[in-house]
Design a protein around this nucleic acid. Structure first.
Lengths: 168, 168
DNA sequence: TAAAATCCTACCGTAATGGTAGGAATTAGG
DNA sequence: CCTAATTCCTACCATTACGGTAGGATTTTA
């Protein structure tokens, strides 16, 4: 299960990406629009700011704003920042690796071999999708809704991305 | 994180698949070979038996044994049986669906659109891999270890599997 | 009948999750 | 300079899931 923290963060980021032009937006506004507990969202946006993806301004007319372009925000990094590594096994995490303890031989561990594929597939999606791409996809879902055409997730142009070095 | 319950189960099943010819194998034997807490494994194997994938015999010379062919055991079902549905969001689970509560419009929910892909990719792997295939892969890893050739997970012959209806 | 095994029920400590409470610091507008 | 709106920061807390353990009842073989 993706933790609420990450769910709320993604929702808030999509919202902020949509309202880039409107200047800083207060937490209360986002919370109301997305039905997220205010104080909880407050803490989440603070973390996102401390990790460099948001800017904030205090006082009246203050609020949060994207610091970087939505095209440069990789969703995997968002999830990682808030909820830690996503590896399904400790021995598959690059950033927080540690042996499984019970594992007799890591290179021939059945569980590891299976979950390595799962992990790789997950990373390819979450790290291969940017905030901009996600917003585009939501738009596509909104307009294509009637015709029922569910579209793919990566409408990103350019060469199929130069060897991303996925972390976790 | 894949729960220990499922990890242990997968290890035990691989072990049992390897020792199919040896008749029933007592819990203590598997636990010792795979470094799994005995009483915990006891409970796990019991569940696997109740779900129909293992047979048991009591008393001396008793133990556990595969009830079905390893080619028919889909690893996704094993995980589901022991640890419940794997959907990363409640609204993506077929077997335990329920709305996210905070979700304003489910069909245009950004989080859902993203995680749907992750979920699908995961199911394609865990439900597309059988116990037999996993054992084969471990063997491949064991022999290919020196040459360092990491091989793919599905050496299954036949057409690319007739529309599996993945559950969770 | 003794020993080896499965089977079953109950319990339990620890950590993570999903928040809430309360207030301090900053800033804009009047 | 005062007030109100906002971010920022520190604590706390209830509930649940996880990863087991304990103890014994039941079955079966030798």
């Amino acid at each position: 299960m993706l933790p609420m923290k990450s769910r709320y963060a993604l929702k808030a980021l999509v919202f902020l990406a949509r309202h880039q032009a409107d200047g800083p937006i207060p937490v209360a506004g986002i919370a109301a629009a997305e039905a997220i507990p205010v104080k909880f969202l407050e803490a989440i946006l603070l973390e996102l700011r401390n990790s460099g993806i948001l800017t904030s301004r205090r006082g009246p007319t203050g609020g949060y704003q994207l610091r970087v372009a939505p095209q440069t925000v990789h969703l995997g990094d968002v999830i990682r920042n808030l909820s830690g590594p996503m590896a399904p096994l400790p021995c598959l995490s690059k950033s927080a690796y540690h042996r499984c303890g019970e594992c007799v031989d890591e290179t021939t561990c059945a569980v590891r071999l299976l979950m390595a594929d799962v992990h790789a597939a997950t990373l390819r999606i979450v790290d291969g999708t940017t905030l901009a791409a996600l917003v585009a996809r939501v738009d596509a879902a909104a307009s294509g809704e009637a015709e029922g055409q569910s579209q793919r997730c990566r409408p990103q142009e350019g060469p199929p991305s130069a060897k991303l070095d996925f972390i976790d």
